[in-house]
Design a protein around this nucleic acid. Structure first.
Lengths: 302, 302
DNA sequence: TTGTAAGCGTTATCAT
DNA sequence: ATGATAACGCTTACAA
């Protein structure tokens, strides 16, 4: 008898309604990951890691593109809540002095109270758990490595005023200070190729050259690297260039960098959301210095 | 009286349930876009374009990462159907002789019969509408441009065996043939930086140099470009290198390429899904040759 | 094993 | 304007 039903189901191409099921079971199997910019490989990799493990567990992942705007993040949290999402993950860092932070905080608080799991993948002042890396240490080790190579005049290219980027810069400065040095120069940046390009142009305009340039992320470093090389500067012969991130293209261009486990960040967050433990925890994933061909010991000639 | 209710709603932090609403109205406001690889900027840009306009219209976008596997696409269509998604968009090209194509075709057919809108953003043998570009013409124009520059010995780097890539290669060959030439060399590829790297290595191993290298996409071209330059070959002085795509990094590296309106592809698809017209249409978006600094007229010296 | 009834949070309809 | 009721497609619990 049940077989007849099953056969009929096959026949009529029946598929159960996830919506109806979610409504009655109170488990939507929907979860959202809010990224700053889908096009940025850093976020894309996180999304991939998350979706890989969540998808395998039968969950549907909503990748939400917030365009680095806090209000948009807040809107997404509300939409996700309307769809009874079981969790949200915030992949982006928050801007340092964003007036919208308070609003987001409240919205997240309410969603959390309603049973929504929340995980941040970068330092954020939000309820819930976090899975991050130690950005300050990453920055510190990078400069420490350059100094170990014999470099003394180290130029810095900062990231945008978001918490994670600020920590990296802090790490740069702390290492310099601990080693009795100070920055050769400091350029502003926003994590883009263009920022690196601009910084390199600034460097080129100066008659004095640094021994090395430490950048807040890979894109910036690549901007510096290609601009310098196109201007005829030997990298790493004359100047070493390093970044942070270890995105696919960094490996390819043989950029020395600090590897950040972006895929893992997403994957760990997913496991955390699926297991429905509600305690708030802080996980810090390891990073790793990856010396490659854009950094070398300081050359003998001045 | 209604004000008291509204006030209470505010107080209790009430938010309507999208799930329940979807169940009764038969409109989920959920739509999925299935990409081949979220990390690839080509797809990421499409996703961004789609989500931008869909989000503005109050729709929730599910970005599904199929890892370039047809079976995974099929699974996603089923999941989307369970959630009463109002539409799916296929952003990736299908593999040429994929045994899973038939299964996907059926699944899509059923979903379509159930009222799900479907749009392909690349040549695919699926029910529904399509928004594409003319890959063959893009390839043709690119080679035509190189020949116009005076190049005669043109090496080709192909993409993977997916329909769109095959068309680009077809275009390359057609242009060569029409101009009475034939390929200087042909390398296989898979749209990655590594493929370009490998092709360049092959080129370098040959005592004879081509005048130019036409690549199936930007990543491949960048692989060729950087490898050639690192080996001391002057680009574009000795060899011109061109790609297809016009991704962000292409602009930055001043790569000559054919611009493909990826964001628009997504945006147009979204408008199409939102307007609930059910007729099947074919839209072809324009591409545009973008000559930049990696291509130049053939130099006088042999 | 098979059937019946209630309920999830909405919208829609019809009556008040 | 307001209130009451059915229905959406499912799960769960309890009864036959």
């Amino acid at each position: 008898m049940r077989e007849r039903v099953l056969a009929a189901a096959r026949e009529l191409d029946y598929a159960p309604s996830g919506l109806a099921r979610a409504l009655v079971t109170k488990r939507s199997r929907i979860v959202g990951v809010i990224v700053g910019d889908v096009v940025d490989p850093y976020f894309a990799q996180i999304a991939r890691g998350f979706e890989d493990v969540a998808g395998r567990a039968g969950y549907l992942t909503m990748v939400c593109n917030a365009e680095r705007r806090t209000v948009v993040e807040q809107e997404y949290v509300n939409v996700l809540r309307e769809y009874h999402a079981e969790g949200v993950v915030f992949a982006a860092s928050g801007a340092v002095d964003d007036p919208d932070n308070a609003g987001l905080r409240d919205t997240v608080e309410q969603a959390y109270a309603r049973g929504m799991n929340v995980i941040s993948l970068a330092p954020r002042d939000l309820r819930g758990s976090s899975v991050t890396i130690d950005n300050r240490a990453a920055g510190y080790e990078l400069v420490d490595y350059l100094v170990g190579l014999g470099h003394r005049n180290i130029a810095l290219v900062a990231g945008p005023p978001v918490i994670g980027a600020v920590e990296r810069l802090d790490g740069f400065h702390a290492a310099l200070r601990d080693l009795g040095l100070e920055a050769f120069a400091l350029y502003e940046g926003d994590f883009t190729l263009g920022a690196g390009h601009a910084a390199a142009l600034g460097l080129l305009a100066d008659p004095e050259r640094p021994d090395a340039v430490a950048c807040a992320n890979d894109a910036t470093a690549i901007g510096v690297l290609t601009t310098l090389r196109q201007a005829g500067v030997d990298v790493p012969g004359a100047v070493s260039v390093v970044g942070i991130g270890d995105t696919a293209i960094a490996d390819y261009l043989e950029l020395s960098t600090v590897s950040i486990p972006t895929y893992e960040l997403g994957a760990v967050a997913a496991r955390r959301i699926l297991g429905d433990e509600r305690d708030e925890i802080q996980i810090v994933l390891p990073h790793r210095l990856v010396p490659r061909a854009t950094s070398a010991p300081r050359s003998a000639s001045p």
